[in-house]
């Protein structure tokens, strides 16, 4: 076992891909000479050369689309869009093209494209630079959406993503790059569509992903001190969604809370809450609760921004209020 931060786990994942598969190449803005906006690809240009580490112009639409095109003829591009906010410039290529090619061609074409990007708020980057759109992409059939919360998962999920033949949005949370965790030396993979029970419990199920997993864990810690046993589930992927693990947990705890960083309206938590209610209504002791950021654009001011990001105390208060725990 060795310890590493999530950033290094991602670098390791990318190096493996480059080392093991000569169909793999990387492209994106400032991934080469600059070393990556979040330093994931630092040193790669020197190591692998310009052919495989391709600095692109600031042209998201064309380099994301070009990734899909190269994937159509058997390459395995790994495209980095500096942050998920900028994927909107390329959303047509992602949603109308990459996501649809397999279906429209009746399986004649595959698009094994990994689109790595950085998601989430908390850095005082204000309204245009603090968003989380992985829920949007998760609603598009044909795309898979991976949202790791730990270094172990980042590496394991990336390995599985590399073997997948579909376009994948691989969203790394900006505030998680320095999170440290155990990563074994031995090879392992984590299948897409299999949630992780981060902590077992029997009174309430807390469902989270990406940056919100640690918030759920903090809430579970507070519950523990109050003799409430919380089960924490890390979704790992939004699409495919591991509903089975969620339902099994809810059957045990009878209570569920879904925690998500982005806006409540249209949030993925709504879809999950609804799925749980449909599948396990008779087991529930109350409504499935949703904890989301409020429906406001991210403000710059630090004190206001902090009001945007769900906190453990929000979970604790809601659980107390709604379930009397």
């Amino acid at each position: 076992m060795s310890e590493m931060i999530l950033r290094d786990a991602m670098s390791k994942a990318l190096r493996e891909a480059l080392d093991q598969d000569d169909r793999v190449f990387l492209m994106g803005e400032d991934i080469g000479a600059y070393g990556g906006a979040y330093a994931v690809t630092k040193g790669f240009l020197e190591e692998y050369g310009e052919e495989r580490i391709r600095d692109t112009p600031i042209s998201e639409s064309v380099f994301v689309g070009a990734g899909a095109g190269a994937a159509m003829i058997g390459m395995r591009p790994i495209v980095e869009v500096m942050t998920i906010n900028f994927t909107l410039v390329a959303i047509d290529q992602i949603v109308n093209h990459a996501a649809k090619l397999s279906y429209m061609s009746n399986g004649q074409f595959k698009v094994p494209l990994i689109l790595r990007t950085v998601t989430g708020g908390g850095g005082q980057l204000a309204a245009t630079h603090s968003q989380s759109f992985e829920n949007w992409y998760a609603s598009v059939p044909g795309l898979k959406v991976v949202v790791p919360a730990t270094p172990y998962d980042a590496l394991g999920l990336f390995r599985a993503s590399r073997k997948d033949n579909n376009p994948i949005i691989f969203a790394e949370h900006a505030m998680l790059y320095r999170v440290r965790g155990e990563v074994p030396e031995e090879y392992y993979e984590i299948p897409l569509g299999k949630a992780r029970i981060a902590q077992e419990g029997s009174d309430v199920t807390l469902i989270a992903y990406s940056g919100m997993v640690k918030v759920a864990e903090e809430a579970a810690e507070i519950f523990y001190r109050n003799d409430i046993s919380a089960e924490v589930i890390d979704l790992r992927t939004l699409s495919p969604l591991d509903l089975e693990t969620l339902v099994n947990s809810v059957k045990k705890t009878s209570r569920a809370v879904v925690i998500e960083e982005t806006w409540k309206t249209g949030g993925f938590s709504g879809s999950i809450a609804s799925d749980i209610q449909e599948a396990a209504f008779d087991f529930l002791d109350g409504p499935v609760l949703r904890i989301n950021g409020p429906d406001v654009p991210a403000p710059y001011a630090k004190n206001l921004e902090q009001l945007m990001i769900p906190k453990a105390s929000w979970i604790v208060d809601q659980v107390k209020y709604n379930f009397g725990l």
């Binding site: 600031i58 906010n85 909107l88 980057l125 204000a126 309204a127 630079h129 403000p299 710059y300 001011a301």
Partner: peptide, 25 residues
């Protein structure tokens, strides 16, 4: 009011129509 920050300065009166942080936007 502190909501835009460095990258998003605006002043309608001065016809200053914004700093825009999405490149090209």
């Amino acid at each position: 009011g502190g909501k835009g920050g460095s990258m998003h300065l605006f002043d309608a009166e001065k016809h200053f129509m914004g700093g825009h942080a999405i490149v090209g936007g």
